[in-house]
């Protein structure tokens, strides 16, 4: 690959948007070309710095701010945009500053309505979480279909299709990842990452004789983004990536907070996880 060809693919490469073959070719060029390696490192750092700049003014955002925003918001179902504007509520999205939201006519009524909406949303969320947790339709509990036999951390066989304690019941092992087919059994392992997200399933996949390992943990049916193949302990692992963090888990669609413990792992901690997974292999 020539430098000019690499430069044309530099940003898709940095963005993780090239396919596996093109990524390999680009990586090989970076390894051989000091100038392109320098440009790549610079652009990666610059992109990160730009992202930091764009996030700089949202540091104070928290659930309190969201609730405050909700309380200030007009009911979604009542005032039309025109009436909202005429009553002093800005819905501008073009950069014009909105007018103040205090003291507008009927704000007490709207406040109560917004609170009711929040309560309904919270109740709905809890109901959905409960339905998901207890496998009430439309949520399915067909996880680990590809695993014929599994054991828990003590070696006790578990019923087919379900692995580990309640949280780990949501762990899903996909029969195929990026063209790699699941081989043999998946193995349950305690990652020692705390009370809420301590279980994972290690699965072995193969394609054309090449074996890779994938850690599935609390993914809850979300689609992971496998972007990098890493070498740990002489083995190839697929590591999902989001927001620059190395993940052995993926964000749960509803109970995201349960995944935080495993989603913030630094790379050296992943090595510990890899050790535990290797030890779990018989």
């Amino acid at each position: 690959m020539k430098c000019v060809e690499f430069r044309a693919q530099l940003f898709p490469y940095l963005d993780g948007e090239l396919d596996e073959a093109a990524t390999g070719t680009a990586a090989a060029h970076v390894a051989d070309c000091a100038d392109c390696a320098g440009r790549t490192a610079f652009e990666r750092a610059l992109e990160k710095r730009l992202q930091t700049a764009l996030l700089a003014d949202v540091g104070a955002l928290d659930s309190v701010a969201l609730v405050a925003a909700a309380r200030r918001s007009p009911p979604l179902d009542s005032p039309t945009p025109a009436s909202a504007v005429s009553s002093g509520v800005s819905s501008s999205s073009t950069g014009t500053s909105s007018s103040t939201r205090t003291g507008r006519p009927g704000h007490v009524l709207r406040f109560l309505t917004a609170r009711r909406l929040l309560a309904v949303a919270a109740a709905l969320l809890i109901a959905v979480q409960a339905a998901w947790f207890f496998c009430i339709p439309p949520f399915e509990c067909s996880y680990l279909q590809a695993v014929e036999r599994t054991v828990d951390a003590e070696g006790t066989p578990l019923r087919p299709g379900v692995v580990g304690p309640p949280l780990a019941e949501r762990i899903e092992v996909t029969p195929e990842v990026l063209g790699y087919r699941l081989e043999g059994e998946a193995t349950v392992v305690d990652l020692g990452l705390g009370e809420t997200a301590n279980s994972a399933v290690r699965a072995r996949y193969a394609q054309n004789g090449e074996v890779v390992h994938v850690v599935w943990s609390d993914m809850g049916g979300a689609e992971p983004s496998f972007r990098r193949k890493r070498e740990f302990d002489g083995r190839s692992w697929w590591v999902a990536t989001e927001n620059g963090h190395n993940l052995v888990a993926w964000m749960c669609p509803v109970t995201e907070s349960l995944c935080t413990l495993v989603s913030e792992l630094p790379e050296e901690r992943l090595l510990d996880v890899a050790d535990k997974l290797r030890a779990a292999e018989r």
Binding site: L55, V58, L61, S90, S91, G95, S98
Partner: peptide, 22 residues
């Protein structure tokens, strides 16, 4: 984890903090 980037995105879309919160 999601609210922060969601808000940052809204802020850049609307260019206005109140509108972004809405």
């Amino acid at each position: 984890e999601i609210a922060r980037p969601l808000f940052a995105t809204a802020l850049r879309l609307t260019r206005n903090r109140d509108d972004a919160e809405d």
